[in-house]
């Protein structure tokens, strides 16, 4: 029982991170139909920039803020410099552009930062909390609380504010949104900034647990993408459910089957979802007009 609970804790922690990455995919996909494979690099940037800003003498909260704002700026730059100029390009080209961007960011990070593995102190100490025979790190609670906060804030933003509704309108139908006077270019910029900022926040929260280095982005991007697919691409609720489910699956695979194949869970899930329910758990059925 305590064993299962232990796996649950670690699954939910990792799952919360995947959910945040998947949410980043979802926001950009909704705004621009682009699957942004550079999403994992935002997580890496968040962690690495915090490490270096902290080492440069900034207090941790300020360092984290600098990292998140800086990464959001990188997201905006990615949109302005690489995605917008390629508007209307075929899917292959867009995929290659975002993969190129991810390789570029990784290469730049390796120069600007370094190739070492880094971490910074956990926010509220390293003493594990005991619950029913299982333990959980205080930092895990930070991760989970952070994810919950982001989802609630976004939900409020999308349903209660005019700007949030403008983003939803743009993702529904770009041309129609333009016609009713929504500045869709600004919506795109906002989406990339939000998505990059959320990625960076995930990086800040999880670095004390998983450590970080310049090359952690790719795996996270693939896992987050798997989570988004599992929940149904383009659906924020799906991103949350998909992320948590994937984290739990991984933790259970590692615990009960084989830790070597824990990473395989994500990809087996992708294939199973595609074979059995291509729309994902929460995706809408889409039809084409002729």
């Amino acid at each position: 029982m305590s064993e299962l609970l232990q796996f649950l804790f670690s699954g939910v922690t990792v799952g919360a991170v995947y959910a945040l990455v998947a949410l980043g995919f979802t926001i950009i996909y909704n705004a621009s139909d682009v699957v942004n494979f550079a999403q994992g690099e935002f997580v890496m940037l968040g962690g690495m920039a915090t490490v270096f800003a902290h080492a440069a003498g900034l207090p941790l909260p300020l360092a984290a803020l600098v990292a998140i704002v800086g990464t959001a700026a990188v997201g905006v730059a990615l949109n302005r410099l690489a995605i917008e100029p390629a508007r209307g390009a075929p899917v292959v080209s867009l995929i290659i552009i975002t993969i190129g961007a991810s390789i570029f960011i990784r290469g730049a990070a390796q120069l600007v930062f370094d190739k070492q593995i880094h971490t910074f102190p956990a926010f509220s100490g390293d003493d594990p909390i005991r619950i029913l025979g299982a333990t959980i790190l205080p930092q895990s609670l930070w991760v989970i609380a952070g994810a919950v906060l982001v989802f609630v804030a976004l939900w409020l933003f999308f349903t209660r504010t005019l700007l949030g509704r403008a983003v939803l309108a743009t993702s529904n139908n770009r041309l129609a949104a333009q016609l009713v006077g929504i500045n869709t270019n600004f919506v795109m910029t906002l989406s990339f900034a939000l998505s990059a900022g959320i990625g960076a926040l995930a990086g800040v929260l999880v670095t004390p647990i998983t450590l970080t280095s310049y090359d952690v982005g790719l795996t996270l991007a693939l896992k987050g993408f798997a989570a988004a697919m599992l929940g149904g691409m383009g659906n924020p609720k799906g991103a949350l459910a998909g992320g948590l489910l994937l984290g739990l699956l991984e933790a259970m695979t590692a615990g009960y089957l084989s830790s070597q194949y824990k990473d395989a869970a994500a990809f087996v899930v992708i294939l199973a979802v595609l074979f059995l329910m291509p729309q994902g758990l929460f995706g809408r059925k889409s039809t084409d007009r002729v």
Binding site: I97, G100, F104
Partner: peptide
Amino acid sequence: EQMVLGLVMM
């Protein structure tokens, strides 16, 4: 190398 490769791709 990585930066150049990524840049060329984009």
